[in-house]
Structures are given as C-alpha cells and as structure tokens.
Amino acid sequence: MIRVEHLQKKFGNSEVLKDINFKVDENDVVVIIGPSGSGKSTLLRCVAKLENATSGDIFFNDTKMTEEDHKLCELKGKLGMVFQHFNLFPNLTVLQNITLAPILVKKIEKKEAVEDAKYLLDLVGLGEKAGAYPHSLSGGQKQRVAIARSLAMHPQLMLFDEPTSALDPEMVGEVLQVMKKLANEGMTMIIVTHEMGFARQVSNRVLFMDGGHIVEENTPDELFDHPIHQRTQDFLAKVLV
C-alpha cells in the first residue's frame, strides 16, 4: 500500500531523513519508535505529503506521491492523519468537525454524513458529545473526536503521530483502546508512539529509528526481546525500565 524508497529529507543543510526504505501492506500495523529528534514525525509528515521529500520516492497504491505538483488534497482523505495536538477545528462543533470533509470533499448528503458521524462518535464512545465545541472536551475526548473525524473519510491508511503524548496519563488508555479497536478491524496504520506495551500488543512490525535512519525493523516480539543493534538495545533499556 505504501512503499518508501531511498527517501531523503533535508531542512536547509541538516539531513533529517537518510535513505529510508520500507513497505506497508494492507492490514499492517506498523509502529515507529526512536529517540526524540530521530526523524519520526518528519517521516510521517513526508508520507502524509505535509512535507516534500528532498529526494527518493513514496508510492501510495502505486501512485507516486513525491511528484512536486502532487497535492495532498487530491488524496481526498484516503490517507488520514491524527496529530499530537489534535488540531480539531475550534469554530465547529464535534459533529461539524466530523461531517465537514465528507460533505465538502466527498459531496455526501448532509443527512447521510450526520448518520455516519453519529455512528463513528458511538464507536469512539462520545455519542453524547455531538453538539459540544472542542474547547469543552478533555484531551482524551478531543483525540477520540480527531480519530472519528479522520475515519469519516474512510481512509485506507491512518497515520498517528504520538497521539497520546499530549494527554494526561489517565486519558491515554481511552485513546489507545480506540486504536486497538481499529487495528482489530483491520485498519492499516502507521503509529509513532512511546507507549511500548501498546506497540507490542497492536503492531505486526516495529521500526526503530535513530539519527534519521531506520536502524532496525522486526516483529514486535523479536525487536523488543532480542534487539540486534546496540543502539536499539540502549534505547529500549532506557524506555523499558
């Protein structure tokens, strides 16, 4: 579904991503871990076309996304993204946040969009919040709305950039719960996270990044229990205390 080949990204003179290669197939749940500044967000943002790659190619269903004039909006929500800071639209209600893109982009009837939105709100456990504005929600609730908003476009692939790291600890669980549900339903996902237990439970592949490289890639059990590279071992020793 996604194929990344020799991806390189520079900001000015600093090379943030160096020769990145990986593949994501349908129903894969790929987790990316690594220390701060290793390039995880940048990689996700390149895949989402929020950043333009400096060189190399990214294919989404065999469409070459790395062409300069290929615009993100042309994907029409086929590739959903959930951000660390939610980025809900504060001027719209929860329901309007979710129905906006289906109505504007997919030209779905409003009634149908509202029905779908209500179904999705129930799915993330926020059925009664349809009329609320984002500012009245807790962080965990905001993130669940953000997930529902992405799902409303029925994406083929969901990207998550540290979806729980801006949350109070007691709210992390409710968001991870929703993501687990998605994984079980076969949603293809790429997740950047520091939640190692969760990574192990949901993923079928883990990438460890450091210094702009993918240092190691393996099944979660192998990578967490038998890391091959020294840098992976050091990182895991630090986070798995």
Binding site: K49, L72, K78, M81, F89, S150
Partner: peptide, 20 residues
C-alpha cells in the same frame, strides 16, 4: 496545524480558507 488537519482531510486550500 489547522491547515494541515484540513489538508489531510482532503479540503482544498480555498475550502480551508473559507471554512476553517
């Protein structure tokens, strides 16, 4: 982040400007 969220949802730049 508002523009980025709108773009990943498939909104065009004009729609993003007008609605968000």
């Amino acid at each position: 982040g508002q523009g980025e969220a709108a773009a990943t949802l498939g909104l065009s730049p004009n729609q993003t400007m007008l609605h968000i």
